[in-house]
């Protein structure tokens, strides 16, 4: 049985005086224990909303969550807020993009970590302090005992993100969701954090959902990759498969449009036309059709359904042919 099974997850936002907005539109995927699954996409593709829906962190008013999120067989969407609160921190951990705003600025790092330990693992304060120092050490924060007394603003961005990861790991969750955990960080710091996450997955067997816009991050870290566009998964494959032969024109286009460090200079990029806002509703065809170089008439008339071939899921009427490689 999968550790986490998300099926047909749909999130609709309603604001007074506005048309309802479907941010996530029937997303399904599963995470096995110890597996790293990537959710990739650009702004507005619904990747972050998906993670918030899994964690039960969307506002009750204004957001309607439908579908099913099963964690070890338990339906999370039907849990009460209190039960969900217990789950979070104990079974599910989350790391956010902005480590500064995710930490309480007026409470010391030590207290923020021990709070989690006391609440979820029922540890006495003294023991929790020892454990907290241990956790900070494990995530690579130098001189952890002293850091316990410090406040978030006294740490650098990278150290804050480490502290946040330590908090997420305090209760040894079986699933960790990392939402753009390195986007606010420098490349050299990003490399440290990614190495740390990979190590944690390897050593503790925690499953990881990695949410990012950076295909490079996905390539090095994830076992399986879901590419999202306008609230739906458009392509899913094992990472080597996906990067070697991207079949969806969007995935293909993304890979062709990013400058690669290892590509010879002067080669022209092939951009995707238009912007993320230029889409059509999924009920009227393929949301990507207006920007798609391979769009057919059918693409603006018939909603493409998810098809499977050779372990790969694909939602496209006119996929990129197998022999068309990404221009390297």
């Amino acid at each position: 049985m999968a550790l986490l099974e998300v099926s047909d997850l749909t999130v609709v936002f309603r604001r007074r005086g506005e048309a309802p907005f479907t941010a996530v539109d029937g997303v399904s995927f599963a995470v096995e224990p110890g597996q790293t699954v990537g959710l990739v996409g650009e702004s507005g593709c619904g990747k972050s909303v998906t993670s918030l829906a899994i964690m039960g962190l969307l506002p009750r008013r204004g957001a309607t969550v439908m579908g099913s999120v099963r964690f070890e067989g338990t339906e999370l969407l039907s849990l009460s807020p209190r039960q969900m609160r217990d789950r979070r921190g104990r079974d599910l951990g989350m790391v956010f993009q902005d480590p500064l705003s995710s930490l309480n600025p007026v409470v010391s790092i030590g207290l923020q970590v021990t709070e989690v330990l006391e609440r979820h693992r029922g540890m006495p304060r003294r023991q929790a302090m020892v454990e907290a120092a241990d956790l900070l050490d494990k995530v690579g924060i130098p001189d952890p005992r002293r850091r316990l007394d410090e406040y978030p603003h006294q740490l650098s961005g990278g150290m804050r993100q480490r502290a946040l990861i330590a908090m997420a790991l305090a209760c040894r969750p079986r699933l960790l969701i990392a939402d753009e955990p390195t986007t606010a960080l420098d490349v050299t710091i990003q490399a440290q954090i990614l190495a740390l996450l990979a190590e944690l997955v390897r050593d503790t067997g925690t499953a990881l959902i990695m949410i990012t816009h950076d295909l490079g991050v996905v390539a090095g870290l994830c076992d399986e990759v879901n590419v999202l566009y306008a609230g739906r998964v458009v392509e899913r494959a094992e990472r080597h498969e996906l990067f070697r032969r991207p079949r969806h024109p969007y995935t293909h286009g993304l890979l062709a449009s990013i400058p690669r460090l290892d590509a010879p200079r002067g080669e022209r990029l092939v951009p995707i036309q238009g912007s993320v806002a230029d889409n059509i509703p999924w009920d009227h065809g393929c949301a990507f059709a207006p920007r798609c170089p391979r769009a057919l008439e059918a693409c603006v008339e018939i909603t493409p359904h998810m098809g499977e071939e050779g372990g790969r899921l694909l939602r496209c009427h006119n996929p990129v042919q197998e022999n068309q490689e990404v221009p390297a």
């Binding site: 050299t188 990003q190 490399a191 440290q192 950076d214 390539a219 990472r239 990067f243 690669r260 460090l261």
Partner: peptide, 18 residues
């Protein structure tokens, strides 16, 4: 440290972690 969208390369690369 710059990630490259190529799993084969990523697996092989040696990182100099600062």
């Amino acid at each position: 440290a710059v990630p490259v969208p190529d799993p084969l390369l990523e697996d092989r690369r040696e990182r100099i972690l600062l």
